[in-house]
Design a protein around this nucleic acid. Sequence first.
DNA 1: CAGTGGTCTAGACCACATG
DNA 2: ATGTGGTCTAGACCACTGC
Lengths: 244, 244
Amino acid sequence: MRPAYQDIVDTITRRIASGVYRPGSRLPSEAQFCAEFRVSPMTLRRALNILLDQGLILAEKGRGTFVRPLGLTDCVFRLEDLEGGWVDESTSVRLLAASTTKASDRVAEKLALEPGSRVVYLRRLVLKGERPAMYHVEYVIFDPRRPLVESQLQITPLAGLLSGDRGNTFPRGTVTLRALSLSAEAARVLEEPVGAPALCLEHVFEDNERRPVSWGWFLLRADLFQLTARLGPEWQASQEVDRG
Amino acid sequence: MRPAYQDIVDTITRRIASGVYRPGSRLPSEAQFCAEFRVSPMTLRRALNILLDQGLILAEKGRGTFVRPLGLTDCVFRLEDLEGGWVDESTSVRLLAASTTKASDRVAEKLALEPGSRVVYLRRLVLKGERPAMYHVEYVIFDPRRPLVESQLQITPLAGLLSGDRGNTFPRGTVTLRALSLSAEAARVLEEPVGAPALCLEHVFEDNERRPVSWGWFLLRADLFQLTARLGPEWQASQEVDRG
DNA sequence: CAGTGGTCTAGACCACATG
DNA sequence: ATGTGGTCTAGACCACTGC
């Protein structure tokens, strides 16, 4: 059985999408909706809450509920549906280099360390089949007391890094996405011409106390990876199925 | 007064973030939570629902609720908090060209038209102060019966396009983000060297019947624009304020 | 079978906006 | 004062899992 609140969400969504309720206009009051859909206030409220944090409507206490005008900027891109497919059977990871070095000023700053502190320097190449797809460079704080480093040094952890568990620590941090041109070194590794465009996914991971633990970036070949989002209201068909 | 469900959300979030509840482990049952927080099942459920669609927990009917392990791929980028700022006082739009032409094969395909149909061809430059920041190219279906075109031809509508109302139609469509190198023409317009990196934001807008209405793309100078996201649990401090 | 998540009711009370 | 959104209760019933 399909939940009542879900039907309500879909119905209102459909009305917004088809222009029955126009952008900026006021929706019927909760009491009216309760009467129309024959549900209790709580159930109706739940439906509205869903629409609310989908960003489709806008509620103002004491005034009413309104259809929220949408714009391009309401787009959200999810890294999980990055085209090209992050991880499948044909994906493999090659560890190009792993060593400890002294942190440069830049690295020290990013990791909130004293310049010259020892850090682990990692370079990995992710391949789709035989084809280089991403290049990953990472600096990890070297601290024997923190067990994070061990899992970082494994060759396989990238799959785990991308989707789920990094040791047992809850992943935290900031991720930044930008465009850039490949440096000579990156171009060689990725088998692309120097200056070819790429997406750069820079990350700073933190521990539970929000102290930086690692800094690094993925370079994604622009011809293999892109992010897609849909804009505007969507709903699932109610698909009632008869079971004689 | 702060809602009870919000306090519950924050408390559980804090426990997850600090490692009291570890990734993958089972949370206390709803009945136990109800007892601990002294609330009715509905209120507790509401808190769990919020955590659920924040992606922080995972519920399995009949089995229990679990802490969801997160990974890099759980990142979500919102176009609205693109660094560089889309639209503020210093933003202006310059219409470089507006004309009607016959649709090329490529344009016709994107807009689901017969090749050779008439389309409106627009080129706009968005400046931050005196500095070129984005270059926008767009092809719009030319159909006198659809009033969309008029608002498209205005010089100002870009602000409206980015955040809210496009005529009165609800915005729908698909948006794709990728990296590329500037063509000679784009480089000239953006006052950048040829081949400089840029973010490309391609869009297809649709009408209420989901037929394509316009196709185009924004080129964003890579040195001015980037997207940032935070990964992991966040919560707002409960900040009770005395008003003696 | 008991335990767990999931939905729903029929009210109550509050805070806020408007006339 | 009225209407609006927002929160909350104290139960009930169902579906699913696992012993």
